[in-house]
């Protein structure tokens, strides 16, 4: 024995699995966040088609519906990613609370942004809104008028009118805008965090990254709010000519639950 065995850190006994490691959880958070963010971006682009007119929007909705089983695959995977995001978020938060059991009597924050400190609350609120939002525009169980809307000229469900009816109620519009605002603060910290958790920042690009995250969040906020604002201000109106009678068919005969696709709003 010329010396003690040379041990590298790799042989340290406490090698945790990826998911139980704090960084592992953060990475999963980042990946599920990326999926959720892509959905949000796609959703906004879909929504904005309302400004291209009734036919265009309704046709877009129909094109999603026509994916059939594929749509369900997408929906379920999205839900799984959301679930992962929520699961990790709750787990991280629980661990974090445990890691700092005693609070300071004099509570002070030097740098942390409000959005970064409220992720769990913005996230929870978004989740609650998400449920309501699905019931509202996708399952259409909160507003009986949605189920009685006539089909449009092309024979598609009239998403366009549904949205306008939905947002004519200022309370609905306000709740929506607030929720989207929270979503965007969540995203503004989320995007930066995503890069940080995946190790994709560097001192030279850090500032740019913060600006990018804020810009994306702002664009999303404006994009989402444009619809209810358009309705409230009267820029978006119900179509003047109701669809002809031969297309009149009760929406009730359509499949009532159509998550996301029918409810681009």
């Amino acid at each position: 024995m010329s010396s003690t065995p040379t041990t590298s850190p790799a042989q340290s006994p406490s090698s945790a699995t990826f998911i139980s490691a704090s960084i592992g959880k953060k990475v999963l958070m980042a990946f599920s966040g990326i999926v959720a963010l892509s959905f949000v971006v796609g959703h906004m682009l879909g929504n904005l088609q309302i400004f291209l007119g009734q036919e265009r929007l309704n046709a877009y909705g129909e094109s999603l519906q026509s994916l059939g089983a594929g749509l369900w695959v997408i929906r379920i995977s999205l839900l799984l990613f959301f679930a992962l995001h929520i699961w990790m978020g709750v787990k991280l938060k629980a661990e974090n609370l445990k890691a700092r059991p005693v609070r300071y009597k004099f509570n002070e924050t030097v740098k942390a942004s409000i959005s970064s400190r409220t992720m769990i609350w913005s996230g929870t609120t978004i989740l609650a809104f998400f449920v309501y939002h699905i019931l509202h525009f996708t399952a259409r169980t909160t507003d009986p008028r949605f189920l009685q809307l006539p089909l449009d000229m092309a024979g598609n469900y009239d998403i366009y009118s549904m949205i306008i009816l939905g947002f004519e109620n200022p309370v609905n519009a306000a709740v929506y805008i607030i929720a989207v605002g929270l979503l965007c603060t969540h995203i503004s910290h989320g995007i930066y965090s995503m890069f940080q958790s995946l190790g994709l920042t560097s001192p030279s690009c850090n500032k740019t990254l913060h600006r990018f995250a804020h810009a994306v969040a702002l664009i999303l906020f404006l994009g989402f709010s444009a619809v209810p604002v358009g309705v409230i201000t009267g820029a978006l109106k119900l179509p003047k000519n109701p669809p002809s009678n031969n297309h009149l068919q009760s929406a009730q005969s359509l499949e009532p639950i159509s998550i996301e696709s029918g409810g681009e709003s």
């Binding site: 850190p9 406490s14 945790a16 704090s22 958790s197």
Partner: peptide
């Protein structure tokens, strides 16, 4: 890996990028 594992074991919290 070893340093992160020990860090977690000690009961430090996770990074929220504050």
């Amino acid at each position: 890996k070893a340093m992160v594992a020990q860090m977690d074991l000690e009961g430090f919290g996770n990074c929220s990028n504050y």
